[in-house]
Design a protein around this nucleic acid. Structure first.
Lengths: 336, 336
DNA sequence: AGGGTAACTTTAAACGATTTATTTGAAGTA
DNA sequence: TACTTCAAATAAATCGTTTAAAGTTACCCT
């Protein structure tokens, strides 16, 4: 039960010194004799005193909080990014306030406002969806902000760092590879609206058109990051367009559903149909067949994001735009 | 950039009223005339005033924070439990402070102490590993605490709620089913030390012994929740003990590795070897063959955990010990 | 007109720390 | 002795809000 907690005043009284002397001891400052210091420390230990962080944060002007905003905890980046951020936050003795902003960005404003109320020192936001200029205004309230996967990086204020995965380049490279292997009829299972989702589709379209090919609109389906969607979508596509020879997926989870659908339909992978995913997950090298995927260094993104925030807070020079190169991992689901 | 923020004093000055009147307006209290109220609200809107939550929390004795502690963000329960907790926290206008305590529980004390410093109103802790009596002492600092998956529930203080999955019952049922299908030589891929890990193994041992069978110690390997471990462990086991006919896994991720290993070794599932996992993941119905698994209602656990905390905070009557029944989902990886 | 009451407002004191002066006392210097 | 210097400690103000108590009107009633 929340007991009546010991305060700095209690300690000061018992030690027969002023609160300020106690405060000095707590914060390891000078101007306290060794004798007094030890005596106060002994009392603190004995009484089990722990300074109230809320009061402390009010007096400091630092809150020691970092806001971490995801559209949804279900997105592919979530676990690894949070691991990276936690790691760096711990090193800096910061704490993480976690928020969901909704898959359609509906709660973004509300969430940022709440974080502002808590005077978080910095914000890391993954995949914001609101208009960039409105976002820029909201972000003005924070000393440091880092956005992951966001378009229009140029129009953002100076104190905002952006980290983008170069989704376009990776998908273009993968598409080109498959075209050179003789693939002609591409389909794309797209994810919920997001910046990388748009970029990747554009990469496919552009690359195909360089070869005089095209990605038909009815070969593109949009859905969630689930094997269920991948399964159903693949069945639908292959029923309607049996000559499809390549299915690119926004996410490995979808791709796993696609693999299963092909297995159920008796379509050979990769001979008849090539399949590739993205956002490597631990399972993609354990599927049957193993899955070709675009690997995004998610943990590193979390690390870099958090570091950029702390660099801002400490007025260190920081890059404003950070681009991360994904890597294509070729496995059995695409032709050699 | 952190600009100089508008305070309640600024609003009071501009409205030519006292801070307290403004406070009343903010908190929707009585004793303010409609005229004054509207006027103040207008000023608040115009100046973009937002009350400082830190100062607020200091004045209230509620922090509006919930601490959420996991051993690691990589554990099977993580994403769904957090979703559940977030959901309920949002409804109550609470905020989540997320903490990792380490897979060996090394940081548990440190983390709980930090949460105490922040005066979180309640704590939800998943899979604590420290000795129960030490834990009980630490939890005394909180008004409400809920533990998920913890042994020795009886020795915990009254204000602590525990939520346990009845891992023992489910695993016993599954084992019995497989024995009745004629399986005799069981192996078990165990997870990192945790309460459910211990309980499930015991369930296998006990059930087998009822049938005069036993789980040989060298048929039990321990490792992390990864397909890699499942893969390697399965290969090791099947090489050393080719007559194993059942591999039970602590987690679906391991089981997926086991499936792959059997495929690589040319062992037929389920005819030669039955495989089952636990903690249903989205993929387990998309593996080839599909995976039999013990399904734990993780999202509901998050919901229930958060609700129990709020019930405590609001002095509503609450159950002290909540037991959750997992469900066995039979699929292709075990005999019909 | 006096008293009572309701409707508002204001003053002042928390909340629990830090920060900014200021004071005290002892030691050093000329 | 008188003056400066420095360390050690204290007092008071501050952070931005709420809460409790006191104060002011205005209105109604007899």
């Amino acid at each position: 039960m929340a007991k009546n907690r010991v305060t700095i005043t209690d300690i000061a009284q018992e030690a027969k010194v002023s609160k300020q002397t106690v405060s000095r001891v707590i914060n390891n400052k000078d101007d306290v004799s060794d004798e007094t210091r030890e005596q106060i420390q002994a009392i603190i230990r004995r009484r089990g005193y722990r300074p109230n962080s809320i009061a402390r944060n009010l007096a400091f002007r630092r809150s020691v909080y970092l806001g971490l905003v995801f559209p949804n905890v279900d997105i592919p980046l979530f676990v690894d990014v949070i691991r990276g951020v936690e790691h760096v936050a711990n090193q800096n003795e910061y704490h993480i306030l976690l928020k969901e902003a909704g898959n359609e960005g509906t709660k973004e404003e509300q969430v940022l406002t709440a974080l502002e109320d808590f005077r978080v020192d910095g914000v890391i936001m993954v995949g914001p969806l609101m208009p960039t200029n409105a976002l820029a205004t909201l972000l003005n309230s924070f000393e440091a902000a880092t956005l992951i996967n966001v378009p229009d990086v140029d129009t953002l204020p100076d104190h905002v760092t952006t980290i983008n995965v170069d989704s376009y380049a990776a998908m273009a490279q993968l598409t080109e590879y498959l075209v050179q292997k003789g693939r002609r009829r591409f389909a794309y299972l797209n994810g919920p609206v997001s910046f990388p989702a748009v970029a990747r589709k554009q990469a496919i379209v552009d690359t195909l058109s360089q070869y005089g090919l095209q990605l038909a609109e009815d070969h593109v389906l949009r859905g969630h990051y689930t094997p269920e969607f991948g399964y159903e979508a693949t069945k639908t596509l292959l029923t309607r367009f049996p000559d499809i020879d390549t299915i690119l997926c926004f996410d490995d989870r979808m791709a796993i559903g696609a693999l299963k659908a092909c297995a159920d339909l008796g379509r050979k992978i990769p001979d008849e149909i090539a399949i590739a995913g993205a956002h490597e997950i631990p399972f993609s090298s354990f599927t049957i067949p193993t899955l070709t995927t675009i690997s995004v260094p998610r943990f590193e993104m979390g690390i870099v994001a958090a570091e950029s925030v702390f660099d801002r807070l400490n007025n260190k020079p920081t890059e404003k735009i950070i681009s991360i190169k994904p890597e294509i991992i070729f496995r059995e689901s695409t032709p050699l």
